[in-house]
């Protein structure tokens, strides 16, 4: 492409259209990550169902495969980022959505594994212990998988807050979301009454404080 050629208006328009088109065409997704996770999750789900259905114990948790799949995913991400020589406008927004998704999946896994024990402890502190009588007559303490709904709400509160914070590079919201993740951890072990308090704290750190900061900035900008 020469640079000193005198351009007509039509030529200028043609260059603009052509270049915008070229930039758009370059971003073709390989789909490898989707293939990987679709296969792993699909396999784990269907296999778990079949194992339960036919009463087969494989001796390990099938879902551990999802943890192993993180290794090739890291290699795929590094390889794709090396190959990429331009960044899409929406790249950061999409990345923040998947970061929050990954955090949420990890926390939900933690929740699923811990909530039963935590509930049993809370009930024990209230003087209540549940037992279950097995088919062979033995009696064992029950770890009830009682839903800690407030914890899930806290996870939801953090989601849009973290995505907005990362996209707008607005630290108060990132901090608010991180505090809410911490509150989520605590809420799994605390009774409902305390969970309500934690939800209130989350609302303050996620939205009230960032809101005050934004409002002050807005008023300051308006005054100038």
């Amino acid at each position: 492409m020469q640079q000193d050629k005198v351009l007509t208006e039509q030529e200028s328009l043609r260059i603009i259209t052509e270049m915008i088109q070229k930039a758009k065409q370059d971003f073709k997704e390989t789909g490898i990550s989707s293939l990987l996770w679709g296969s792993v999750i699909g396999f784990c789900g269907i296999t778990s169902f079949l194992l339960k259905e036919f009463n087969i114990d494989p001796g390990f948790d099938i879902w551990l495969l999802t943890a192993i799949a993180i290794v090739p995913q890291i290699f795929i991400s590094i390889k794709e980022s090396k190959k990429r020589n331009a960044k899409r406008l929406e790249a950061d927004s999409l990345a923040s959505v998947w970061i929050v998704f990954a955090i949420s999946v990890l926390l939900l896994t933690f929740y699923q594994n811990v909530v039963g024990y935590a509930t049993a402890d809370i009930l024990k502190n209230l003087g209540v212990t549940w037992y279950e009588k097995k088919a062979d007559g033995t009696i064992e303490q029950l770890k009830p998988n009682v839903l800690s709904g407030s914890s899930l709400y806290l996870l939801l509160y953090a989601m849009p807050t973290m995505i907005t914070g990362l996209n707008k590079k607005f630290k108060p919201m990132i901090v608010g979301a991180l505090i809410t993740y911490l509150l989520f951890f605590i809420s799994v072990y605390t009774p409902f009454k305390i969970d309500l308090l934690l939800q209130g704290i989350s609302g303050i750190v996620c939205w009230l404080i960032p809101g005050i900061i934004l409002y002050r900035r807005y008023k300051k900008a308006e005054a100038c």
């Binding site: 492409m1 020469q2 603009i16 070229k22 758009k24 960044k87 406008l89």
Partner: peptide, 20 residues
């Protein structure tokens, strides 16, 4: 901007966040 190559560069960059 009214130069073939400079206009092409800016038109490319307008559609991406950044480019090598």
């Amino acid at each position: 901007l009214h130069s073939q190559l400079r206009l092409a560069v800016v038109s490319l960059l307008i559609g991406v966040k950044e480019a090598e």
